[in-house]
Design a protein around this nucleic acid. Structure first.
Lengths: 340, 340
DNA sequence: CTGTTAGCGCATTCAG
DNA sequence: CTGAATGCGCTAACAG
């Protein structure tokens, strides 16, 4: 049998009308329990399975949310997807996951494909190539609600759910200060990118609040690769400045810095405490003494999805665009060892 | 505008029939180039986008392949997905990725959802809970081709694309032998699982071929956690047997073993060479000296998809079930150091 | 409570 | 080459 039964097949077999079958299958109260039971039995017997294409076409809604991320394999995004799926499934929605692989061309195709398949909403974390976003701007006309998460575009009226990098940087610095550190280095990334700018601002704000003078010499900008952290630490030590701790804008460069300290036989836990924004759980495996700032992808996914579900519900009275910030979470490792 | 234009809208605007529009949009040769151009222009002007729900319903095919994996975040599966997407997109197919999270209940829902959405084929790597597979057996009736990859079920007529664990174990052992090792330990997993059994058989076969006597004392079975590798190595050293190398059935326990060796100040590269089946690229970061056996997820994805596309094409004359084995790939790290 | 009718948007006969 | 008519499978008015 490769012919799939339809509601008509089961209606015919029972000598009733297909509309009654449809109602029964949708558990409408307007069908006698008796006939409903008969219909369900027959449906099971024939191995009936609703054709969602037809159903969705008719109802003009798919109960499906399209999700576009740069890469599913990145820890942050796979946990975000986890959060998205959890919220979506609870609300009876399906999820279609797509990855742009950081390519604008792919992203365009994916978005247009999702629209063609009439997803009810679109959650997207744009690719790094997405500097021009006409393909997303167009969506406003299509009436499909869009929400950005983690990486966003400045489109009027579209909401974003983002990591609170400022607070993350603030908390990290504050944490080190509370441990007694005063001379805190900051490894920063390209200031053109908001995330790095915000983390840097958080760092400065925490120093200010604790009456610790800001010293430019303690800030080192780089591309934050492991190699960069290694070299930065090398340069720092050469300067012979007092250093109590390092707050790195990501984990890779923090790991690089630790590597260099180890090679120089400088005891990390006792002399220098390091905190890094973490991208992968790996970092804590590689460096068990690294305290990390988790970007709670799960939560960002949940929040974005719940916001999306509201948008879908109130489609007629669309909400204004808003920005929701998700707090990061500081995870202390081997904390007892840090600065004793 | 949240009203999406249809072929009728563009037909009306041009004073022609919607069927002509449909043909033009499908690039049918039975439309004058002039009208075709007009239609395409109008389509673009109105921001027309084909409703795939309607199109798919009508054509009774979705050009979409459903993919079910336990977890997208696991390296092996995300690379498999990469391979699947590459092959699928080249052939003009879309892919819907779903994760069962190793839960049978979720897997059942996902499969039935994909079928309801009329995917043209199903690529699945079953969950660990999938011991009963009625929900997959049923698919044979639905006429939707199914192919297992990496993890399979014994269903008559359904093809599988699997890792060649026997050859992987054989190659790993052979590699160590070729480096001059004679006393080779094997960390194995539960023999109830085919993968571990096959890797073990490969190990034995390689010994046999090289006239090295098999010694049961060199085989240690465990659940292959990092902790297990650590303890196994501890026990082994206590036995005071000669050991040249270790072939571990996964990377975790290999890492555990290395850890213990390091703690005991036993030089790994020179004294004991270790090879482990790798699950994550992480392992080579944690232990740069670990030689790993890569399970080439990308290739398994590609091969499974290409087989699937053939199945879809020849739907009327279905192929018999077959099993395709994908070779693993040995990746030497710091190889110059191993056994000098 | 059930049947009749209509149509979602598209692709494909069959006529012209 | 184009138009008219039909139906994919389902749901939702509207009647009864």
């Amino acid at each position: 049998m490769n012919i799939k039964p339809t509601i008509h097949d089961i209606a015919k077999a029972l000598g009733i009308d297909s509309s009654t079958v449809s109602r029964a299958l949708n558990d409408s109260p307007r069908v006698t329990p008796v006939t409903k039971a008969k219909i369900l039995a027959k449906a099971k017997e024939l191995g009936y399975q609703r054709n969602m294409l037809a159903s969705n076409l008719r109802k003009n809604e798919t109960h499906t949310i399209g999700v576009v991320v740069p890469r599913i394999s990145r820890h942050f995004f796979s946990s975000a997807i986890q959060g998205i799926e959890e919220s979506a499934y609870l609300a009876g929605y399906n999820v279609i996951i797509c990855q742009s692989l950081e390519q604008l061309e792919r992203e365009k195709k994916i978005v247009s494909g999702l629209v063609a398949n009439r997803v009810d909403g679109l959650l997207i974390s744009v690719s790094m190539e997405t500097l021009n976003y006409d393909h997303l701007e167009i969506l406003k006309k299509s009436g499909i609600p869009v929400i950005f998460f983690d990486r966003h575009c400045a489109i009027e009226g579209v909401s974003s759910v983002l990591i609170d990098d400022f607070k993350g940087g603030f908390d990290a610095t504050n944490h080190l200060i509370s441990k007694g550190c005063k001379h805190i280095v900051h490894f920063s990334g390209p200031q053109a990118l908001e995330i790095y700018k915000n983390r840097f601002e958080g760092y400065k704000a925490a120093l200010l609040e604790n009456n610790i003078p800001f010293n430019e010499e303690y800030v080192i900008s780089s591309r934050l690769m492991e190699q960069d952290g290694y070299i930065s630490m090398q340069k720092l030590l050469a300067k012979n400045l007092p250093i109590d701790a390092v707050f790195s804008a990501n984990d890779l460069s923090a790991i690089g810095a630790m590597k260099h300290l180890k090679e120089q036989k400088i005891s990390i836990p006792d002399d220098i405490a390091i905190v890094g924004f973490s991208n992968e759980p790996v970092s804590s495996v590689i460096e068990p003494s690294l305290t990390t700032i988790d970007q709670s992808g799960f939560e960002i996914g949940k929040v974005a999805t719940e916001l999306m579900l509201e948008h879908i519900k109130n489609k007629k009275t669309p909400k204004k665009g808003q920005t929701i910030l998700i707090e990061t979470h500081l995870i202390e490792r081997n904390s007892s060892k840090i600065l004793n």
